[in-house]
């Protein structure tokens, strides 16, 4: 990353105190949505499929099964619409990008929880 990009990223990215999470973890993202001029916070709970990018443009994708249909949502780390992130479970996975979850369903789409 060039010095100019690093400087701008440092200026743009405020402090966000999310818990540390990685692909395979189960998280809840509380994000703001505007409905009829009113703002409210809605949660999106699912597994982290990937974390991509660096600096101000970094983002992460969360996947959940809603009514039997897989739903993925992408959240930029520094979006003002992301209110908070809660870490529910730490998953035991071998990959950084869990695209294989898209082809699986039911029992085989589960991620083992990491026990400490």
């Amino acid at each position: 990353m060039s010095a100019a990009v690093k400087f701008v990223h440092d200026q743009l990215t405020g402090k966000k105190d999310y818990p540390k999470f990685k692909a395979g973890d189960n998280i809840t993202v509380n994000y703001k949505i505007v409905e009829g001029g009113k703002e409210r916070i809605q949660g999106f709970r699912g597994d982290v499929v990937k974390i991509q990018g660096t600096g101000a443009t970094a983002s992460f994708t969360v996947r959940k099964i809603s009514d039997g249909v897989g739903v993925e949502r992408l959240f930029p780390f520094f979006s003002p619409n992301v209110d908070s992130v809660l870490l529910n479970k730490v998953g035991k996975v071998r990959r950084a990008k869990l695209y294989y979850l898209r082809e699986r369903s039911g029992k085989s789409a589960r991620i083992k929880e990491k026990r400490f």
């Binding site: 100019a4 743009l12 703001k32 505007v34 101000a56 979006s79 003002p80």
Partner: peptide
Amino acid sequence: TSIFSTDGKQTACTI
């Protein structure tokens, strides 16, 4: 890079 507006819209931009 990209920059967010206050309502959360992301704009790609060049430095």
